[in-house]
Amino acid sequence: MSEASGMRTRPVARVLQYAAVLGYLVFLAFPLLWLISSSLKSPREFAAITPTLLPKNVDFSNYTNALEEQGLVRSLGNSLQISILTTILVLIVALPVSYALARFRSRLRPITNGWILVSQVFPVILIVIPLFMILRPLHLTNTIPGVVLVYLVWSLPFALWMLQGYVAAVPRELEEAAAVDGASRIRTIVAIVMPLLRPGLIATAMFTFISAWNEFFFALVLLQDPELKTLPLVLARFVGAEGQVQFGPLAAASVLATVPSLVFFAFLQRRLTSGLLSGAVKG
């Protein structure tokens, strides 16, 4: 990279820059390192008054203990089920809408963008009470389909925001050629736009999965049945019962809960920095 200003950076300034980056990274990455290290410590080492950065002996008993907890394994299954169902539904619903948003100058565009904005501004407390009242007569409170429907609607704004940009980047000429050949709009979308949209669909899917996997508030209100609780709910309950709380297994379970999001983020990170959000900023 030929950077005019970089050439003239003095060595002292350079050292300071590296020190600053290091400081940032310690702040941002050390907490997770500590969590992982804690999860690998034996109970005795965990309680030590002088904590050490790395465990003296790597001990996986916290993980086996955590996985022996019935509630935890079940909640892992619930979270997985909810996140996958939400992701599939969001993709099915968001694709045609974002296509229409990117391609047509219809009146629905300002309305949708208005809704996206409003849905960000309103505190969820306003929404969750009526939601609760709507889902109850439909027998959808305390059910996985109920939560999935709520997640579908509340993941849509971000999914639409992302996908719109990807659709806009697909060259129009390809579709026009198909239209000349007599293909219907739906066929054009499925046969031509969708394959070209694969990176966008994958990125949107990962984001939706992560947001459903991490979600806490709606699940807290809508799921009372212990059999149906999601992973964040079970983890939060562990903390609530302080005093007897077993921090070792809790740390292990927390690491397990972080793995899926972290893996997806590793895949997404290049796209994140190359301006995933620039569309949001320009719009």
């Binding site: 940032y24 990274l25 941002l28 990455a29 907490p31 997770l32 969590l35 992560i210 996997w213 991490n214 806490f216 992973l231 964040p232 983890l235 939060a236 927390s254 809960a257 972080t258 999001s261 972290l262 997806f264 983020f265 990170q269 994140l272």
Partner: peptide
């Protein structure tokens, strides 16, 4: 590495 906090569930 700087993205780590973003990827973690708030409860964790």
């Amino acid at each position: 590495l700087a993205l780590i906090p973003w990827a973690m569930p708030p409860v964790v």
